[in-house]
Lab assay of single mutants.
Amino acid sequence: MATGGRRGAAAAPLLVAVAALLLGAAGHLYPGEVCPGMDIRNNLTRLHELENCSVIEGHLQILLMFKTRPEDFRDLSFPKLIMITDYLLLFRVYGLESLKDLFPNLTVIRGSRLFFNYALVIFEMVHLKELGLYNLMNITRGSVRIEKNNELCYLATIDWSRILDSVEDNYIVLNKDDNEECGDICPGTAKGKTNCPATVINGQFVERCWTHSHCQKVCPTICKSHGCTAEGLCCHSECLGNCSQPDDPTKCVACRNFYLDGRCVETCPPPYYHFQDWRCVNFSFCQDLHHKCKNSRRQGCHQYVIHNNKCIPECPSGYTMNSSNLLCTPCLGPCPKVCHLLEGEKTIDSVTSAQELRGCTVINGSLIINIRGGNNLAAELEANLGLIEEISGYLKIRRSYALVSLSFFRKLRLIRGETLEIGNYSFYALDNQNLRQLWDWSKHNLTITQGKLFFHYNPKLCLSEIHKMEEVSGTKGRQERNDIALKTNGDQASCENELLKFSYIRTSFDKI
């Protein structure tokens, strides 16, 4: 039985969820670079991206490699990797027998973001014989899940209580170790020597080791999670996991709180800001991140802002960003909400898709409305799209047979046209069989910064309504002859009103 693990408890099935942008060198404390989270699957090609990484700022997932063999891993080693800020997950990587050479110096898994409450997941690794993470000293947050690894031993010899604050939620089941077939031998045991430290858990006094050649490092209890030197002297209180010299914040392997210019500090002093819960960055760093993602459509890219001495992905609820200094300031009234469309555009074809934009005031991208039916549609669209004030790209209304009016965009005031449909149009209306009105132009103002209007096959939309939009939106004169079809717009509506004058002759039985 794995020490510190839980057996036999019912657990939810383990679901495996399925960018080499360097964020800056980590400095003297770390020998390499800070790398983003990685999802490495199918083959070993991307694994080489770990070569210079000291910190993975995010998670590391290595999974679904069915053609790899043990010899493929023999020359692979990433000794610079010290810390993973989120979680480490391995799933069905064939041929991998140990992690001792792959990650010989991995010391800390912070667990800032977890995989279903777990910071370390080893699942269905069919050839893994031992973990071998002999320098792993601290899992700051989260638990361990090690399950269905039929060859995995050296679990009962690990004292997880020396690595985690609590072992109650560890789930370590259905491994070879369960069948008591392992016969784990710690260093020196074969020669009758006791080389590794022994600890007591559940009444068992057991030597602690990761492999037959690597003991588990056990520091004096007084050192807590700070770690200790090879001689057993406690590291500085700002260290986490390990250090090369005692009581020196510049000799830590990793930091308990924050890293700044080669030393570990309790908090980031001005003019620095907390970033990702582990390091200090200056304003320029946060500003660069903001600008890199301002026009990016890459998933996970955030326009970072500053709030409460932190550089964070977005302002919290009730705050909006001051564009001059990136500071989050309290909103006066309802907060603006910028919604970034991942692929640059979004099609609204149902109430469900409209709900995804609920509360958005600025759309960074283009909207395509293609709704053919739905219950209580006008009210639903207004509830979900009615706060949109600005669209950076274009607005396209296409084959939306259920629409009679666009009044559900009740606050839309600006279409920038930074991206144009077919390279020309910022407003595009095609084949809307029941569209009769755009907006009530006596109450609604709309500016279209650039781009043209396109109207074709809107049989109940009168040309007068379209011409009014040209005047109000500032697009009059931009359109070419064929942009607004004269014969297919309003051709099934009563669009022309003329005053009919009647004269009559009164007659009676005795007068003409």
Rank of each mutant, 00 (worst) to 15 (best):
residue 302 H to M: 04
residue 231 E to L: 05
residue 41 R to H: 05
residue 201 I to M: 14
residue 307 H to R: 06
residue 164 L to E: 01
residue 172 I to H: 11
residue 256 R to M: 14
residue 140 T to R: 09
residue 34 V to G: 03
residue 323 S to V: 06
residue 121 V to E: 00
residue 190 A to K: 04
residue 209 C to S: 01
residue 28 H to T: 04
residue 194 T to W: 15
residue 103 F to Y: 02
residue 330 P to F: 05
residue 124 E to F: 06
residue 135 N to K: 13
residue 132 G to A: 10
residue 134 Y to P: 12
residue 330 P to E: 02
residue 295 N to E: 06
residue 37 G to D: 11
residue 161 S to A: 14
residue 334 P to T: 14
residue 100 K to F: 11
residue 249 P to L: 03
residue 53 C to L: 00
residue 329 T to A: 15
residue 184 D to R: 12
residue 233 L to H: 14
residue 213 S to W: 04
residue 324 S to H: 15
residue 187 P to Q: 04
residue 175 N to Q: 13
residue 320 T to G: 13
residue 182 C to A: 14
residue 41 R to Q: 06
residue 174 L to F: 10
residue 51 E to C: 15
residue 183 G to S: 04
residue 293 C to D: 09
residue 214 H to D: 07
residue 307 H to M: 06
residue 144 V to T: 05
residue 162 R to M: 09
residue 193 K to F: 02
residue 28 H to F: 09
residue 310 K to H: 05
residue 170 N to I: 07
residue 314 E to Y: 13
residue 191 K to I: 14
residue 273 Y to D: 01
residue 68 T to K: 10
residue 193 K to S: 13
residue 80 K to C: 10
residue 237 S to M: 06
residue 301 C to S: 06
residue 39 D to C: 11
residue 127 H to T: 03
residue 257 N to H: 07
residue 245 Q to G: 14
residue 197 P to Y: 06
residue 263 R to T: 02
residue 231 E to F: 15
residue 120 L to M: 04
residue 44 L to S: 10
residue 158 I to S: 04
residue 119 A to S: 10
residue 273 Y to M: 15
residue 132 G to T: 01
residue 66 F to L: 13
residue 228 C to V: 05
residue 273 Y to G: 01
residue 328 C to S: 01
residue 300 G to E: 08
residue 284 S to F: 04
residue 330 P to T: 10
residue 281 V to D: 00
residue 33 E to W: 07
residue 179 N to D: 08
residue 310 K to M: 09
residue 43 N to R: 09
residue 177 D to F: 12
residue 155 L to N: 04
residue 117 N to Q: 08
residue 64 L to A: 10
residue 93 V to H: 12
residue 211 T to S: 08
residue 240 L to I: 13
residue 58 G to F: 00
residue 236 H to V: 02
residue 41 R to A: 07
residue 115 F to C: 08
residue 105 N to I: 01
residue 251 K to W: 05
residue 213 S to C: 04
residue 243 C to S: 00
residue 80 K to P: 01
residue 36 P to R: 10
residue 62 I to M: 15
residue 90 L to G: 00
residue 259 Y to V: 11
residue 193 K to C: 11
residue 304 Y to V: 11
residue 124 E to L: 02
residue 168 E to F: 06
residue 262 G to C: 03
residue 319 Y to Q: 15
residue 192 G to I: 03
residue 104 P to C: 01
residue 277 D to N: 14
residue 275 F to C: 02
residue 44 L to Q: 05
residue 200 V to R: 11
residue 264 C to L: 00
residue 241 G to C: 04
residue 96 L to C: 14
residue 69 R to P: 11
residue 190 A to I: 06
residue 189 T to P: 09
residue 165 D to L: 13
residue 143 S to D: 13
residue 70 P to I: 06
residue 324 S to M: 09
residue 41 R to T: 14
residue 151 E to Y: 12
residue 188 G to E: 04
residue 299 Q to G: 12
residue 140 T to M: 06
residue 136 L to A: 01
residue 320 T to W: 10
residue 77 S to M: 09
residue 284 S to W: 07
residue 305 V to Q: 06
residue 58 G to Q: 00
residue 100 K to M: 08
residue 151 E to M: 05
residue 258 F to H: 06
residue 50 L to Q: 01
residue 284 S to E: 03
residue 236 H to P: 03
residue 130 E to K: 07
residue 83 M to C: 06
residue 59 H to W: 11
residue 147 E to Q: 03
residue 302 H to A: 12
residue 40 I to M: 06
residue 184 D to K: 04
residue 247 D to I: 15
residue 303 Q to A: 04
residue 236 H to W: 02
residue 69 R to L: 05
residue 92 R to F: 11
residue 293 C to F: 10
residue 307 H to K: 11
residue 297 R to K: 09
residue 33 E to I: 09
residue 152 L to V: 14
residue 77 S to A: 02
residue 323 S to N: 02
residue 199 T to Y: 05
residue 240 L to D: 03
residue 277 D to P: 03
residue 277 D to R: 05
residue 246 P to S: 03
residue 196 C to M: 03
residue 136 L to Y: 01
residue 56 I to S: 01
residue 308 N to L: 08
residue 241 G to I: 01
residue 257 N to A: 07
residue 207 E to H: 13
residue 145 R to F: 09
residue 155 L to P: 04
residue 115 F to K: 03
residue 201 I to T: 03
residue 320 T to M: 12
residue 275 F to W: 13
residue 263 R to D: 03
residue 32 G to A: 09
residue 122 I to Y: 00
residue 116 F to T: 04
residue 335 C to N: 10
residue 228 C to M: 02
residue 58 G to C: 01
residue 202 N to W: 12
residue 220 P to Y: 05
residue 332 L to T: 05
residue 41 R to P: 00
residue 48 H to T: 06
residue 319 Y to W: 15
residue 139 I to S: 00
residue 137 M to I: 02
residue 232 G to I: 02
residue 280 C to K: 01
residue 229 T to Q: 08
residue 166 S to Y: 14
residue 62 I to C: 01
residue 43 N to Q: 08
residue 313 P to S: 09
residue 283 F to G: 07
residue 250 T to H: 08
residue 141 R to S: 08
residue 212 H to K: 04
residue 77 S to F: 15
residue 171 Y to P: 05
residue 186 C to G: 04
residue 160 W to H: 01
residue 257 N to L: 03
residue 290 H to M: 13
residue 178 D to I: 05
residue 177 D to I: 15
residue 156 A to P: 07
residue 69 R to W: 04
residue 121 V to D: 00
residue 100 K to E: 12
residue 335 C to Q: 04
residue 130 E to N: 12
residue 241 G to S: 11
residue 57 E to W: 05
residue 122 I to T: 03
residue 212 H to R: 07
residue 233 L to N: 14
residue 249 P to A: 14
residue 48 H to Q: 12
residue 283 F to M: 06
residue 47 L to M: 06
residue 203 G to K: 13
residue 195 N to K: 07
residue 241 G to K: 04
residue 109 I to E: 00
residue 279 R to Q: 12
residue 267 T to P: 01
residue 260 L to A: 08
residue 90 L to Y: 02
residue 282 N to C: 15
residue 318 G to E: 04
residue 191 K to L: 05
residue 180 E to S: 08
residue 183 G to P: 10
residue 302 H to N: 14
residue 83 M to G: 06
residue 57 E to Y: 11
residue 42 N to I: 03
residue 302 H to F: 08
residue 192 G to L: 15
residue 298 R to G: 10
residue 163 I to N: 01
residue 111 G to N: 00
residue 283 F to T: 06
residue 175 N to S: 10
residue 106 L to G: 00
residue 320 T to K: 04
residue 106 L to V: 02
residue 138 N to Y: 06
residue 210 W to L: 05
residue 66 F to T: 03
residue 330 P to D: 12
residue 128 L to Q: 04
residue 180 E to Y: 10
residue 306 I to D: 10
residue 220 P to M: 03
residue 275 F to E: 02
residue 101 D to E: 12
residue 162 R to A: 14
residue 146 I to L: 11
residue 44 L to G: 09
residue 243 C to Y: 00
residue 323 S to L: 11
residue 74 R to W: 04
residue 295 N to G: 14
residue 299 Q to S: 05
residue 135 N to W: 06
residue 173 V to P: 10
residue 199 T to F: 12
residue 71 E to Q: 03
residue 191 K to T: 05
residue 154 Y to R: 07
residue 135 N to S: 09
residue 328 C to I: 02
residue 218 V to P: 08
residue 322 N to K: 06
residue 279 R to G: 14
residue 37 G to L: 01
residue 169 D to T: 12
residue 145 R to T: 03
residue 195 N to D: 05
residue 273 Y to T: 05
residue 39 D to M: 09
residue 94 Y to P: 07
residue 276 Q to E: 13
residue 112 S to I: 15
residue 187 P to F: 14
residue 272 Y to A: 03
residue 67 K to H: 03
residue 79 P to T: 08
residue 54 S to G: 00
residue 122 I to E: 00
residue 205 F to G: 07
residue 74 R to Y: 10
residue 191 K to G: 12
residue 210 W to P: 01
residue 268 C to W: 00
residue 57 E to F: 04
residue 134 Y to G: 15
residue 307 H to N: 15
residue 56 I to Q: 01
residue 336 P to L: 11
residue 109 I to S: 00
residue 173 V to H: 12
residue 142 G to M: 00
residue 288 D to H: 09
residue 227 G to I: 04
residue 207 E to K: 15
residue 50 L to F: 06
residue 319 Y to S: 15
residue 310 K to Q: 06
residue 336 P to D: 13
residue 42 N to Q: 10
residue 283 F to E: 12
residue 225 S to A: 03
residue 126 V to G: 12
residue 39 D to R: 04
residue 213 S to E: 09
residue 62 I to T: 01
residue 293 C to A: 06
residue 127 H to R: 04
residue 295 N to C: 10
residue 174 L to W: 10
residue 261 D to F: 03
residue 119 A to Y: 00
residue 151 E to K: 12
residue 53 C to P: 00
residue 88 L to E: 00
residue 300 G to H: 10
residue 270 P to M: 13
residue 142 G to I: 01
residue 206 V to H: 04
residue 30 Y to D: 03
residue 128 L to R: 01
residue 42 N to F: 04
residue 279 R to E: 07
residue 39 D to T: 10
residue 236 H to K: 02
residue 107 T to A: 08
residue 186 C to L: 03
residue 226 H to T: 15
residue 157 T to F: 03
residue 107 T to C: 09
residue 253 V to P: 03
residue 87 Y to I: 01
residue 82 I to M: 05
residue 100 K to T: 08
residue 310 K to G: 03
residue 269 P to L: 03
residue 237 S to L: 11
residue 243 C to F: 01
residue 68 T to R: 12
residue 49 E to M: 06
residue 84 I to G: 00
residue 130 E to F: 11
residue 244 S to R: 13
residue 175 N to D: 05
residue 88 L to N: 00
residue 149 N to T: 10
residue 152 L to F: 03
residue 28 H to D: 07
residue 69 R to T: 05
residue 299 Q to I: 05
residue 297 R to T: 09
residue 242 N to C: 06
residue 46 R to Y: 09
residue 234 C to H: 01
residue 135 N to V: 01
residue 249 P to C: 04
residue 289 L to E: 06
residue 230 A to F: 15
residue 305 V to Y: 06
residue 285 F to T: 05
residue 182 C to P: 04
residue 311 C to E: 01
residue 177 D to L: 08
residue 185 I to M: 11
residue 81 L to C: 01
residue 146 I to W: 01
residue 128 L to M: 10
residue 102 L to P: 01
residue 61 Q to T: 08
